[in-house]
Nucleic acid binder design. Structure first.
Length: 910
DNA sequence: CGGAGTACGTAC
DNA sequence: GACGTACGTACTCCGT
């Protein structure tokens, strides 16, 4: 029986390689962690591969080694270690130790030498050794017992592998390196001798340096590089060759006070690992650890004081009545619904849960249906009993993504009011850049608690159960925990919010009041003429076929027009068109701007492709898909508005996205004709005019820009007049177009390069325009500089209402990343303030609609536009109330102009 | 067959 | 590298 091999890991080499090979990753606080994660991943995979092996993870120690004493220039050409790498060393060491893996870090020698010593002594004792490294120099250690693996690439090098890879065996690797040198380590080698020459010498003689120098006369004497002959060179640099030999030789006799049996990995120290993983934000591993802790019966390491939970599943009327009393008495309670699916307009209610105090919660199953399910309380009776509480605006409640529960309960006749807090939104307002605001992530992040995941009790994939099929024994604790954790999260998050009054205010005054408004908009849905879209689909399909035929003819063969890869092959390989631009991954780009330029140059195929693309986009994304999204129950389309997605505070929309319905082209606008008012009603579309530029004028307090808006000038024309030095009346169409590009570019933090590309002038010219702009609008320049400075100083920027966007990358060493963060810093206050304003408007408009008794409702929000449906005889009354409410949603130094149109469909209403 | 990543295109 | 914020579709690659 063979022993498991000793596994020796070259930690420093992997850390370095992981740092450079893997995309940079950092915590929300900006601590870089990508290399740590990469190395740990690699170690875990090695551990799985060699579960019974002794193990050592070896790192270079700080300070000089014996090689520095041998040669002062050793490794001297290396640039200093990047800070982002340096700061990852300590956390990695800590993780390795906590994982129970023996870690070695020996001063005065390099990791290679420690590995060499351990490898040789183990091999001498006849134990196989696996060295995991990305460093080729280690090939010198390979022998019958010792093999190299590169765990990042999966390659394995035994003796034959070394010969195949280098052309010489392991015993000549040092000689090989000594002759050719090593740029990376600054091992000099023999000048003029490279890989080929070194190999030729060693292979020709069948020996190493000693043999070579003993038989220099046998080396062919032709002059090399027109200078000295090879033997002369070798002779001249004999000392250098032997010094290089010494430098390249891995020490195998380091004095280590260490026995092999000390290298057996111990158990992972979860108590140590949990805080490390929390700090480094390794969420999946943290979750796994917490689950293991729980399973092992350890008291949750992160929350040692956690009392046992008191969760009840209510099946008896008396139990329910007792809980009802508790809810009535509670100052604040958490609630949650369990349903059969994720679509709030379709899913059915299965149960409800409540929490009144931390760790104290109840689940009321109402509609579980599986073989042997116990008798449940009557759904109608339970809901009737709960209704007064749930509908009472004075009865404070907290939910997690409460809009979902509100929409579910609305279909059971309960109009939930008084949702004072929503943990998803609390998390979002605290940090909009956090990627996830779902309860499981928040519990892990803020409570250090690993929740029961839905997949744990429902399974996954095709055989995933719906909640009504889940046994009460599992459903009860899961559902009760949802309410409990929501309450506990709220206590934690609200405290953090209250510490920043402006953020608490954003939550209280903007986000929370918006929740029921969005719920109503989603519930009403938008009416869409499916028949019209169907006709358009047919027409578009015919057009696509025509264009496809044309494209095939021009290409000389058939191919998939929707495949950028195949298209690239036709355009660039077959037809030989010039490659004007490449994608991020190096493919020749076929993007619209590229095709447009090629079409401009007179090639016929690109124009056909552009036409095809636009037609197929309209068909596949809109005319084909929108009718499929009509809810059969209501006959309308119910989008979801997401309130905790964008970094800036905007809403987003999905399933379907109704915020990117085409408008720019005539063809595209036909889709808007399918968004219709029902008979007897009209659509009113009201949009803020130039809201972001107005906000910029306000924030920048720029007199010129303020003046333009106060006099209700066409701002692009005014900008053109300033930048091009002409009278307002003399501004040409082209000048206005360029000025518009400048104005938009400013909002987005655009550079001269970008502006030049956009308006088709030289970069120098674009820079001149920008310079002129800033000369005419100095307040804007000052504002941009202020914003960058604020971002750098505070690490965040703010909207008018104090909403924050954190920008950790504002301090990035990487110039591109930092510049991108600066552009975001410029853009976010404007985009985010506009979002705040329309959200405030939606809240007041909704309240007014409720109290006015008008037969009107909001249907859509598209960032700077609200679309409403109103009975046709009330259009004017609606406009009269709506416009001032929207205009008055913020008090700026410029008027907030709102323009409204009316029509039978969305296109007409513009 | 489905998830992840890429390329592209629509909106503001 | 070069213009901010989103979401959806189709393709492609890869693993089950």
């Amino acid at each position: 029986m063979t022993q498991p091999p000793l596994v020796l890991v070259d930690g420093s080499s992997y850390l370095y390689r992981a740092f450079h090979a893997l995309p940079p990753l950092h915590t929300s606080a900006g601590l870089p962690t990508g290399a740590v994660k990469g190395v740990l991943n690699m170690l875990l995979s090695l551990r799985r591969q060699y579960p019974d092996s002794p193990f050592a993870v070896v790192f270079d120690a700080k300070g000089p080694t014996f090689r520095d004493a041998l040669f002062e220039h050793y490794k001297s050409h290396r640039p200093p270690m990047p800070d982002d790498l340096r700061v990852q060393i300590e956390p990695l060491h800590a993780c390795v130790r906590a994982l129970g893996l023996p870690l070695l870090c020996i001063e005065g020698v390099e990791a290679d030498d420690v590995i060499g010593t351990l490898a040789r002594s183990s091999a001498a004792a006849d134990r196989p050794v696996v060295i995991s490294t990305g460093d080729k120099d280690m090939a010198q250690l390979v022998d019958g017992h010792i093999t190299l693996v590169n765990t990042m690439t999966g390659s394995v090098l035994d003796r034959a592998g070394v010969v195949e890879k280098f052309g010489v065996g392991p015993e000549l690797i040092v000689d090989f390196l000594a002759l050719m040198g090593d740029k990376v380590d600054n091992i000099p080698g023999v000048p003029g001798v490279g890989e080929k020459t070194a190999l030729g010498l060693l292979q020709g003689l069948g020996g190493g340096l000693d043999t070579l120098y003993a038989h220099l006369e046998q080396v062919p004497g032709l002059p090399i590089r027109g200078a000295k002959s090879l033997p002369a060179k070798l002779e001249e640099h004999r000392e250098m060759a032997y010094l290089s030999y010494q430098l390249a030789t891995i020490k195998t006799d380091v004095a280590l006070d260490l026995q092999l049996d000390q290298l057996h990995p111990g158990a992972a120290d979860r108590e140590a690992l949990i805080p490390l993983y929390r700090e480094l934000e390794f969420k999946n591993w943290l979750d796994e650890l917490l689950r293991e802790s729980k399973a092992a019966g350890e008291d949750g390491a992160a929350d040692p004081a956690a009392p046992p939970t008191r969760y009840e599943t209510l099946l008896e009327p008396a139990q329910f009545d007792a809980w009802l009393e508790k809810l009535k008495a509670a100052e604040l309670f958490a609630f949650d619904t369990e349903t059969t699916g994720l679509d709030a307009q379709q899913a059915e209610l299965v149960g409800v849960s409540f929490a009144i105090a931390p760790f104290e919660a109840a689940y009321v199953p109402l509609a579980h249906s599986y073989m042997g399910v116990p008798e449940q309380l009557d759904r109608e009776a339970v809901l009737a009993a709960l209704r007064p509480l749930l509908e009472d605006p004075a009865k404070a409640k907290v939910g997690q993504h409460a809009k979902y529960d509100m929409n579910i309960l609305a279909r059971y006749g309960i109009e939930v009011r008084g949702v004072a807090f929503d943990t998803m939104l609390e998390s979002y307002v605290l940090d909009s850049t956090a990627t996830r605001h779902d309860m499981d992530s928040l519990a892990l992040k803020y409570l250090g608690h690993s929740t029961i995941h839905f997949e744990d009790i429902a399974g996954k994939g095709a055989k995933q159960l719906t909640f009504d099929q889940i046994a009460l024994e599992q459903a009860g604790p899961y559902a009760a925990e949802d309410a409990d954790v929501t309450l506990r999260l709220h206590q934690c998050l609200w405290e953090k919010l209250e510490a920043v009054p402006s953020l608490a205010r954003v939550l209280r005054e903007i986000e929370m009041p918006l929740v029921p408004v969005l719920a109503r908009i989603e519930r009403h849905g938008a009416l869409v003429d499916a028949k019209l879209l169907g006709q358009q689909s047919v027409e578009l399909g015919e057009k696509m076929q025509q264009l496809e035929r044309q494209a095939f003819e021009l290409a000389g063969e058939e191919f998939n027009l929707a495949s950028p890869k195949q298209l690239g092959a036709i355009l660039y390989d077959k037809l030989g068109l010039p490659i004007l631009s490449k994608t991020a991954k190096g493919q020749a780009s076929t993007a619209e701007s590229v095709l447009a330029e090629l079409a401009e140059q007179g090639y016929p195929l690109p124009q056909v492709l552009m036409d095809y693309r636009s037609v197929s986009k309209l068909k596949s994304t809109y005319t084909d898909k929108l009718p499929e999204q009509i809810n059969p129950r209501t006959g309308r389309i119910h989008t979801s508005y997401h309130q905790a997605v964008t970094a800036t505070g905007r809403l987003s929309s999905s399933d379907p996205n109704l915020q990117n319905i085409p408008i720019r082209t005539a063809e595209g606008r036909r889709i808007r004709q399918a968004f219709v008012a029902p008979p007897g009603y009209k659509l009113v579309a009201a949009d803020y005019s130039q809201i972001e530029l107005r906000i910029m004028a306000h924030l920048a307090r720029d007199e010129g820009l303020l003046d333009a808006f106060r006099h209700d000038r066409d701002v692009h024309r005014a900008t053109a007049a300033e930048v091009f030095g002409v009278e307002l009346e003399q501004v040409s169409h082209e000048q206005r177009r360029s000025a518009k590009a400048i104005n938009f570019g400013l909002i987005y933090g655009m550079s001269a390069f970008g502006l030049a590309k956009q308006i088709g002038v030289e970069r120098k010219q674009a820079q001149a325009y920008i310079d002129r702009y800033f000369a005419r609008y100095p307040g804007v320049l000052a504002y941009m500089e202020r914003t960058r400075a604020q971002a750098a100083e505070q690490g965040f920027v703010e909207t008018l209402f104090g909403r924050r966007l954190y920008l950790p990358e504002i301090h990035a060493k990487n110039g591109a990343l930092r510049k991108a963060a600066e552009r975001t810093a410029i853009n976010a206050p404007m985009q985010g303030s506009a979002a705040d304003i329309i959200k405030r408007a939606m809240v007041t408009v909704d309240a007014w609609l409720q109290e006015s008794g008008l037969d009107a409702r909001m249907i859509l929000q598209v960032h700077d536009e609200l679309v409403l449906e109103v009975r046709e005889d009330q259009v004017e009354a609606l406009r009269a109330g709506l416009l001032p409410l929207m205009s008055g949603a913020a008090d700026l130094d410029v008027p907030l102009l709102v323009e409204a149109g009316v029509g039978d469909n969305w296109d007409e209403a513009h």
